[in-house]
């Protein structure tokens, strides 16, 4: 089955409805963050997130996360029906704490990367990605 335009619109409408229920939506997000951080405070610092300002298509959005020291980096798409995207754990033979992938975004939204640093602290970076729904291509 293809993701047709009609279905994409329905999906978008679903996301909109979810956004209309801020308590539940943010609860899922808060749970996810708490699960990763164990409730610790999240500051800013050694974490970078590179994402396009405007995505050509929400189905395939290239992103890159990087940090000098992180042990783990979790990526969240705050406006998706479920916010989780991926969690990268860097092992002994990781040459850097850098990773790239391609992700799905249900619409214009913030993407967040949270890094767990070796001292047990957490830092985050956020980037807004505009997702266009086009004439014929979208």
């Amino acid at each position: 089955m293809e993701l047709t335009r009609r279905k994409a619109i329905l999906l978008g409408a679903g996301a909109f409805l979810a956004a209309g229920l801020p308590f539940r939506a943010s609860a899922a997000l808060e749970d996810k963050i708490a699960e990763f951080t164990g409730g610790a405070e999240v500051g800013s610092g050694d974490i970078k997130l590179i994402a396009p300002e405007i995505a050509e298509n929400g189905n395939t959005v290239p992103i890159e996360v990087s940090s000098e020291t992180a042990d783990e980096i979790m990526v969240l798409a705050l406006g998706n029906p479920t916010p989780s995207v991926a969690t990268f754990k860097f092992g002994k033979l990781a040459a850097s704490r850098t990773a790239s992938t391609r992700i799905r975004l249900a619409g214009t939204q913030d993407v967040m990367a949270i890094a767990k640093l070796p001292d047990g602290s957490f830092v985050q970076a956020t980037s807004t990605v505009k997702v266009t729904i086009g004439g014929c291509g979208g």
């Binding site: 189905n59 395939t60 959005v61 798409a77 998706n80 479920t82 989780s84 995207v85 991926a86 969690t87 990268f88 754990k89 860097f90 092992g91 002994k92 033979l93 990781a94 040459a95 850097s96 850098t98 990773a99 790239s100 992938t101 391609r102 992700i103 799905r104 975004l105």
Partner: peptide, 27 residues
Amino acid sequence: EFNGENVVDVVLEPAISTNPYLEFEAL
């Protein structure tokens, strides 16, 4: 893994695009 030693371990969720692509650096 390289010779049994971990390089990366990634948890993927449904928000990863079709035909999942991953890029990283190894020693």
